[in-house]
Computed example of a mutant assay.
Amino acid sequence: MSRGIVVALATVLGGCRTAEPPMTTFAPKSDFAEWTYSLYLQVIGWDSFILVLVGLLLVLALFRYSTRALGKGETPPASRERVELEVAWTVGPALVLIAIAIPTIRTTFRAAPAVAPAEALHVDVTAHQWWWEVRYPDLTVVTANEIHLPLGRPVRLELRSADVIHSFWVPQLGGKRDVVPGHPNAITLVPHVVGMYPGQCAEFCGLSHANMRFRVFVESPDDFQAWIAHQVMPVLTPVTSEDLVTAGARLYATSPCVTCHAINGVSSGRLGPNLTHFATRTTFAGGTLANTPENLGAWLRDPESVKPGAQMPRLGLPPAQVSELVAYLGSLR
Rank of each mutant, 00 (worst) to 15 (best):
S66W: 10
N145Q: 03
A320M: 04
L159V: 08
A33C: 15
T254L: 02
V239N: 14
S241F: 11
A127W: 01
C16E: 02
S48Q: 08
A253S: 12
C201N: 15
L329A: 07
T282Y: 03
T18N: 11
S38P: 01
T90H: 03
A19F: 11
V141I: 13
V239W: 14
P21F: 05
F109A: 03
L157P: 02
A10I: 04
W227N: 05
R68S: 13
L251Q: 13
T108D: 08
L58M: 13
V194K: 13
F168C: 11
G297V: 14
S161L: 02
R82T: 10
P103F: 03
V12I: 14
E242Y: 06
E86A: 12
I102T: 04
V194Q: 14
A247T: 12
R177S: 15
G73I: 11
I228M: 09
V142F: 01
A111M: 11
L325A: 07
R153E: 11
A229C: 01
W169F: 14
I5E: 08
P117C: 07
R301L: 11
V170A: 15
L275Y: 01
G309W: 05
V216K: 08
R215T: 11
G272S: 05
T67S: 13
E294N: 09
G199S: 06
F168L: 08
H209V: 01
C205M: 02
H128T: 02
V12M: 06
V7N: 13
T237M: 09
T126G: 00
Q172V: 09
E219G: 09
I100K: 04
S66E: 08
T24V: 09
H148W: 01
Q311S: 05
T140C: 01
V54P: 03
P137L: 07
P319Y: 03
C260I: 06
G14L: 10
G45H: 04
V179L: 15
G15I: 01
S66I: 09
V115M: 14
F278C: 10
A88F: 15
Q42F: 04
L41T: 08
L159T: 08
E304R: 13
A120L: 04
T188E: 15
R64V: 12
K29A: 15
R156D: 13
N185G: 10
S208H: 05
V6C: 08
T143V: 03
G272R: 02
I187P: 00
A298I: 11
D138Q: 10
A118L: 02
P256S: 06
G199A: 04
F26W: 13
A320D: 09
D243R: 04
V54R: 11
N145V: 05
G15M: 01
F109L: 10
V306K: 09
L300K: 08
A253E: 10
H166N: 13
V194I: 14
R156M: 10
C205L: 00
V239D: 15
